[in-house]
Amino acid sequence: MKAAKLIVMYPVPVDRALFERRYTEEHVPMAVEKLAGKTRFVASLITSTAGNAPAPFHRIAEVYFPSMAELEACLHSEGGQETASHAMEISSGGAPLFLISEVETFDFQ
């Protein structure tokens, strides 16, 4: 069974400082507490594109689950719905993009 991942891509906010405060002080703790079944949470701050063009996204969050069934159960749970609603509320640059993916990992040494 493949692992699964929820990806949330936040557009560049109208007020970056306000977004960062709410994201780090409110949203991340909420996600940690309320997203049942997660195995890993990665929060990336986008600093540029490879060609140094303006990036269309400010943050990308990745939440890993052991299976697609566990990810879907989380999304339909009260905690998952509350966390998704909060993501929409704090995203002042437009609605965040929610993606669901299967995960394959390749490690190199």
Rank of each mutant, 00 (worst) to 15 (best):
R22C: 02
S77K: 05
P96A: 02
F106L: 15
A53G: 10
S91A: 07
H86M: 11
Q81C: 05
H76C: 07
E70T: 09
G79K: 05
S48Y: 04
G51S: 07
L99F: 09
V28A: 14
P66W: 02
I60F: 05
A61R: 02
L99A: 15
P13V: 05
A55D: 13
S92K: 09
S44T: 15
G94A: 10
E20W: 01
P56T: 06
V12T: 08
V103D: 05
F65P: 03
N52K: 14
Y23A: 03
M1G: 14
M30S: 12
L35T: 06
G37I: 01
K2L: 12
G93K: 01
A95G: 03
I46Y: 04
A61F: 00
K5Y: 00
H76T: 04
L75P: 03
E33I: 01
K2M: 14
I7S: 10
V103W: 06
P11H: 07
E33L: 11
S101R: 00
R21I: 00
F19P: 04
E20T: 06
M68D: 10
V32M: 15
E33G: 08
A43I: 13
P56L: 07
E33W: 03
A4N: 06
I7W: 01
E89R: 11
K38Y: 01
L71A: 02
S101N: 05
M30N: 12
L71V: 06
I60P: 05
V42K: 10
V8E: 01
T83M: 14
H76F: 03
S67L: 02
S85C: 11
A3C: 06
G80D: 06
S44H: 14
V32E: 15
